[in-house]
Design a binder for these strands. Structure first.
Lengths: 234, 234
DNA sequence: ACCGATTTGTTCTCACGTTCACAAACTCTT
DNA sequence: AAGAGTTTGTGAACGTGAGAACAAATCGGT
């Protein structure tokens, strides 16, 4: 018997699949909200914007939660995915850097509704201390250790300027935070065992610009006129 | 002679490479700012947080811009990457949805400094019209078409609630926008030829939560006490 | 002009992720 | 109870990406 139970920690879920589970979870919630109790892999795949074979394979890593000939029970599958991701429990989170982006993050309702609780907002600028953002008071960065210790925080969000990001990360790691979501446009170096995910607004736009430029160039090249001069002449 | 010149539109750059080019660009800019004129692939790879072999392979897709035995000229390589991505030109951008996140995006200096110019802020809520955010007036959503036409906008940013996102996207596509950066937590369906990139804050946190949970479970399983009760009993 | 040191560009191999295709398993009708 | 129709779960083929390793090219010293 080599079947892996869903509580077997040795069972490995591919990273690409993990990244899609939250999408499935959201799609299932949307289906449940419209009163749908059962759905096929095709239905769910459409709602999640993926191929149904990929969806089935992804779900198969979690276990066998569907019924052949029928499909998936929406609520049951939703619970299983939520449990797998870990959003059935509450995750305390600290946000460091309360500028424009920090404000937006603190106010973002999508966190709270998915099991993430913002327990503190921190900023190095003392003039911000005491300000209330989304019902939480901004506190000095120095209080990070006490807060992380008190609330058993494992996840930190960095929304500072790039220049401060590494220092903040170092401090977080030293205090015991093991997962960091980094919005600052800088490469963080952290020790083994600490997970970092990066969200970089301008990189996303640059990727779009690249493809946009290619579309334009392609159209240009396809047009019968104006062969593009090579840079060599300039 | 099958060599592909850098202006050959048929030359294909892998998507994974495209996504890293902006990181290299940023790292090069940082190096240039510290007065460094030349760097090896090892130096740049370290600054960008990647493996040097991967970096060299990525750069090789653009052309042969290094010198063996020496390395890369920082300014020259920076220009070549910027040109490849398309950030040597100016990209007009519209932002739709001026809530907390829209404000943060409008104020984000990283856009402007990388060739993206916010030409308009739009919101369906008429009570926001006329408000000035980051030096740009908020205008009614209806003016999208005129603005896109006037400024030749190809890239749109959606920062609305999920419920409005698909409608906004449809409208953008109808008007001629071909690249969309979507911050709303919803799956957009768009026709062939339109690029969509998604930034989803809560998905990133959920991915971290998954790994965090696994770390905790692993530690628990390793500990000699407390076998985890299966959900079946609950 | 040659030799050793250095570093790029590229080839080869392996791992990962996606998609197809189908057998297994379930429901419903007769 | 059996067969037709569905739909899942998975094995196999394919494509893409990562990393190691090395040949080609350049520089500096003698």
């Amino acid at each position: 018997m080599t079947a892996r139970s869903s509580t077997d920690p040795a069972r490995v879920i591919p990273e690409a699949t993990v990244a899609r589970l939250p999408v499935y979870l959201r799609a299932l919630t949307a289906l449940a909200d419209t009163g749908i109790r059962t759905c096929s892999s095709e239905d769910l795949a459409t709602a999640a914007g993926v191929n149904s074979a990929k969806l089935r394979k992804d779900l198969s890593y979690l276990g066998s939660y569907g019924t052949r000939g029928v499909g998936y029970d929406v609520d049951y599958l939703r619970y299983q995915i939520a449990r797998e991701i870990g959003v059935t429990q509450d995750w305390p989170v600290v946000i460091v850097g309360i500028g424009n982006l920090g404000h937006a993050l603190a106010n973002y309702s999508g966190f709270r509704s998915r099991g993430f609780r913002v327990v503190a907002l921190l900023d190095a600028d003392p003039s911000l201390s005491g300000e209330i953002v989304a019902g939480v008071a901004v506190r000095p960065f120095d209080e990070l250790e006490a807060i992380v210790h008190d609330h058993d925080v494992a996840i930190g969000v960095i929304a500072t300027p790039a220049s401060a990001a590494q220092d903040v990360a170092d401090r977080m790691v030293a205090i015991g935070i093991t997962s960091i979501l980094n919005f600052a446009p800088s490469v963080l170096s952290v020790p083994e065992g600490v997970d970092v995910r990066k969200v970089d607004l301008s990189i996303e736009l640059q990727i779009l610009a690249y493809h946009e430029q290619r579309k334009a160039n392609g159209a240009e090249a396809a047009a019968p006129v104006a062969p593009v001069a090579d840079g060599g002449a300039a």
